[in-house]
């Protein structure tokens, strides 16, 4: 006997969602000092004011979550994680270009 599973309401955090720095810290598992360092490095650009009052668009989350995972799992510091993130991003962009170019070269079936 199968019942229809209950429907949940999903809310996608998009650029229209602004999140407070405390929530950002929770979602990314970063501490405030790390977020301040990320702002210093230009990875996030908070509006003026005290760090505790900062707000961010939810679009910053994916990158910050990668930074946080790299820091936590590989034991690198903020600068190291940002460096790795930027290299990964540039590698992915190159791979996309490479695939596009390979698509041009590949013989048709």
């Amino acid at each position: 006997m199968s019942r229809t599973p209950p429907m949940l309401t999903a809310e996608v955090l998009t650029e229209s969602h602004w999140i407070a720095v405390t929530q950002l810290c929770e979602l990314c598992r970063l501490d405030l000092a790390a977020v301040e360092e990320l702002a210093e490095l230009g990875v996030v650009s908070p509006r003026q004011g005290r760090a505790a009052d900062w707000q961010f668009p939810a679009t910053v989350l994916p990158r910050l979550r990668i930074v946080s995972r790299l820091m936590r799992d590989l034991g690198v510091n903020v600068s190291g994680a940002v460096l790795a993130l930027e290299l990964l991003e540039s590698q992915r962009a190159l791979e996309r270009r490479l695939r596009a170019l390979e698509g041009l070269l590949a013989a048709e079936r």
């Binding site: 309401t9 999903a10 809310e11 996608v12 955090l13 998009t14 979602l27 989350l61 994916p62 990668i66």
Partner: peptide, 8 residues
């Protein structure tokens, strides 16, 4: 890619 979806 990488977006967060919240299920309250």
């Amino acid at each position: 890619e990488g977006q967060l979806i919240r299920l309250a």
